[in-house]
Design a protein around this nucleic acid. Structure first.
Lengths: 331, 331
DNA sequence: GGGGAGCCTGAGAGCGCTCTCTGGAAGAAT
DNA sequence: ATTCTTCCAGAGAGCGCTCTCAGGCTCCCC
């Protein structure tokens, strides 16, 4: 492990001052060509890489961005590819901008203060919050401290904070409209938690289409887990045995619902059609494969990153979702 | 956005020198109690948090650890909870040590140089590599530069590099022995890629048990994806219709295999028993639920972190795996 | 009572870098 | 020829912190 060369060394080798070497390294145009070249050569010969700490100290920038996942979210990490997509998207975009990605998985309790302190003290140039709960106080706190913040998901209370959201309402509408178009009469819904914007919006989409098509809504609420989907489906069947379709606000719950249907002796899609939401990998492995709504998670990550870097125009972005039709709604 | 207080401010408020304030902040014991308390109070009143850049500049430490995922791995990110577990484990342990987690998703091409430069230039105090390929050159390069490195998974070429591995051989043996104990006679295997240590070891375990129980092995090779599992199962059935059990080197492939079995009209477990490996969430959702081998991914992450921080004794750790018996092997 | 020994505290030197400010050279304008 | 402008390089201050070193104090022992 040889000692790392400093800018001083580079300057000496190139026969210029440290200031000039710095100018070249940072790409200033106001340097004579031959001097620029001499410095560039010295940099390469010495294998010089700027010391980030020293640079941060004077520029007050850290060249890194925090990506914050509330702990509850990380628990479903493994089940939910949304997060993986976001991480990849953010990573891709940060890499392009030569920024570092600092990942913070926090519990709501102590972790939040840690994030807050860390972020408000200039350790990062911005924060991307992958919070699914719209009432999260963290974004507001950070914004008040002047830290650039972007949220994934629209806050449930209207605010001026920048966010990137999926078109949950639109996706739900398309899904339910699909069921209507397939000739289903009695379309139930298994909703997600109503304290999450995704849960609320998806239910809204369902309600709107049902209202437009003069159908009565029949709803059970789950918490996005598979088991809650099973329970909700059982309840729906008990409430109304005539159900011939169900819109489920998450694929995981949809898997549970299909399980309940199978146990109840209903065939999918013949007796009951099922639509999910998320397009998790498992959705294409079920029998029959699950019709669902795909979300552009990678794109979401990219936009989040670009917004927090200030490269994006708008501050409130809604990305389109897409219906993926599979066997659970078509014979 | 108020200006952040500096150590100087804290010292002034506490009526001591900057050096003493620093000592208190860094927990030196050689400070008089009342002075310590005065400084502590000043720190709290001012909401002081040390400037990491300034600290790094003089200590030559960064207090952050890089977690590197080769890009191919991140593609299966969403399917494979192994990575989620590792991330969580690493995060947990780093948080405890007050270190930051810098996540780097890299492609083999340009990304590697980026990681190498970044890590060899003191930006991080250590690197955890979640590489699944044992022949990865990165660990060796970093180690040669004096950067602490730990790999997840044993390198396929023997080396002195520290690693944390799962007991793949042991897990496979237990799985296959379970099939033997259930009275299965003709036990096939769907192996993973033979350029990955996990693929190799799991096959080894299968071979050992089959050899010990005087059975003939019958093997097809997949690439850990679901589709490859389907294809492999079809081939196995074609090769030997008498198969009454199959050990599959990954759950994803096992899902594919079960799909193929169903299509071929074989009942699981009555006609053919199936054991997978990994215990992904979907494994408990199949019908019947999949018997599989669980890996302590969270623990793996923790150990990786502690090893790279130098908190761990051993340098080559193998964690135990556990057979989870479900319906795919028992009626 | 004098001299060590021991323990705290403060002064100050940098860590490596950026950035302002100054100076000097060269070219343009008078 | 003189002054003004323009442009580029260097000097130097400091970002906020840690850590060595030295000084001063107290306490103990002879």
């Amino acid at each position: 492990m040889r000692a790392r060369p400093t800018l001083e060394k580079v300057a000496a080798r190139a026969g210029v001052s440290r200031a000039t070497a710095s100018r070249v390294v940072n790409g200033s145009t106001r340097v004579a060509p031959q001097i620029r070249e001499a410095v560039t050569r010295a940099v390469e010969e010495l294998g010089y890489v700027p010391n980030q700490a020293a640079r941060s100290l004077v520029t007050q920038r850290s060249d890194s961005i925090a990506l914050v996942f509330p702990e509850p979210a990380t628990r479903v990490f493994s089940d939910d590819p949304t997060f993986a997509g976001i991480i990849r998207g953010v990573s891709l975009e940060l890499e392009k901008a030569d920024k570092q990605l600092v990942l913070m998985l926090t519990d709501m309790a102590g972790g939040y203060q840690r994030v807050e302190r860390y972020a408000t003290n200039g350790h990062v140039d911005g924060v991307v919050i992958a919070s699914m709960h719209g009432t999260d106080p963290l974004p507001g706190v950070l914004a008040r401290h002047g830290v650039p913040v972007v949220c994934s998901g629209r806050p449930s209370v209207p605010s001026s904070l920048p966010y990137v959201d999926m078109d949950n309402v639109g996706g739900a509408r398309r899904a339910v409209r699909h069921l209507v178009e397939r000739g289903r009469r009695r379309i139930a819904a298994i909703a997600g938690p109503q304290d999450m914007i995704a849960g609320i919006d998806r239910l809204t989409g369902y309600r709107e289409v049902l209202h437009d098509s003069d159908r009565r809504s029949i709803i059970a609420v789950g918490d996005f887990t598979r088991d809650s989907g099973t329970a909700a489906m059982r309840q729906l069947l008990a409430d109304d045995p005539e159900i011939d379709a169900v819109f489920v606000a998450s694929d995981l719950m949809a898997l549970g619902a299909m399980h309940a249907l199978r146990q109840a002796g209903r065939r999918v899609p013949d007796d009951v059609a099922v639509v999910g939401f998320d397009d998790i990998p498992a959705a294409s492995y079920t029998e029959p494969p699950l019709t669902t709504v795909r979300q552009p998670t990678l794109e979401m990550g990219r936009r989040l990153a670009r917004m927090v870097l200030g490269q994006e125009e708008g501050t409130q972005v809604v990305l389109p979702t897409e219906l993926v039709v599979r066997g659970s709604t078509t014979p």
